[in-house]
Design a protein around this nucleic acid. Structure first.
Length: 286
DNA sequence: GGCCAGGTGGAAA
DNA sequence: TTTCCACATGGC
């Protein structure tokens, strides 16, 4: 195995970041690190303290992908003083919001509807293995298939990857992107509202998934996806006295309350809630 | 063996 | 406008 080279990564936690439900294809390796693909580039990665060790030649790529330039002090300082968020932020120290490639982020979150994180991983890996280009020596990983490739797959083939009713949406979205009906690159230049609306033109993409794409691929750190977990947290932390609050009101509250880095707040609340639940379940089972 | 999961879209009220 | 429901799958 090639020697890895170090880059400086203070306030970064590789394991927590990869386990926080924003990316789904990294695999643990025998050396206590991970192997994965950043776009089409295979990368081995491992963390020791404040050093991140990566495949030689991928230092710049990895630093950008893992968002090592995000100023975490400023981001955390921008959060409202709020006990629920403070606890989550402390718990999630080191979790970064990645900069993922547009298409694979849109496509994997498209398949996330009504699925647990572990299932999203399985589906994502199955789609890669079935349709993606292989990287010699990196099996079972494969590059996430281009929209053009998925556009000429059949719904039956996609269902065989465990997608269920999501197969039709992935196929339709792949076709829309392949045909240029929606131009993912062009969305980069749009403001947040226009970008959200444009993403929602894709079949199977609504506000939740569009916000995930904005946050995890388009670097919109204020985007605030509301899923079942976040909705529960918001209701519990801020609306115990108002059980009738609507999803729309929750979205407006989040935009107002959490500020310009609301997406980070959201990710911390999400990961904290999920991990706490897992701990409780694990410790009470005997 | 039910329960539930990083939702969405279309119909009904 | 809001509310309701179908849509597939698999780990726990």
């Amino acid at each position: 195995m090639t020697k890895l080279v170090p880059i400086s990564a203070p306030h970064f936690d590789l394991q927590r970041t990869l386990d926080s439900g924003q990316v789904f294809h990294w695999l643990p390796d025998a050396a206590g690190g991970y192997q994965g693909l950043i776009g089409e580039t295979p990368v081995r990665i491992k963390q020791t303290g404040d050093q991140l060790w990566v495949t030689p030649g991928t230092e710049v790529l990895a630093a950008r992908y893992f968002a090592l330039d995000h100023e975490m002090d400023a981001i955390c300082a921008s959060f409202p003083a709020d006990p629920g968020l403070s606890e989550a932020a402390t718990f999630c120290h080191g979790v970064r919001i990645l900069r993922q490639p547009l298409w694979e982020c849109v496509a994997t979150f498209l398949t996330s509807a009504m699925k647990q994180v572990i299932h999203i991983r399985q589906m994502s890996l199955a789609v890669r293995q079935r349709f993606g280009r292989r990287v010699p020596g990196w099996e079972p990983l494969a590059i996430y298939p281009e929209p053009e490739r998925l556009a000429c797959a059949t719904e039956t083939e996609l269902r065989e990857c465990g997608l269920g009713f999501r197969a039709k949406n992935l196929l339709g979205t792949a076709r829309s992107v392949a045909e240029g009906v929606v131009n993912l690159e062009a969305i980069r230049a749009m403001d947040d509202n226009a970008a959200l609306a444009e993403l929602c033109r894709l079949p199977g993409v609504g506000p939740k998934i569009a916000n995930c794409a904005l946050l995890f691929a388009y670097e919109r750190l204020g985007a605030f996806p509301i899923d079942v977990w976040i909705e529960r947290v918001l209701r519990k932390n801020y609306f115990l006295r108002k059980p009738n609050v609507t999803p729309k009101q929750l979205q407006e509250f989040a935009a107002r309350h959490f500020g310009p880095y609301g997406g980070y707040a959201q990710q911390y609340l999400f990961h904290h809630a999920r991990t706490e639940k897992k701990k409780v379940k694990g410790s009470s089972s005997h």
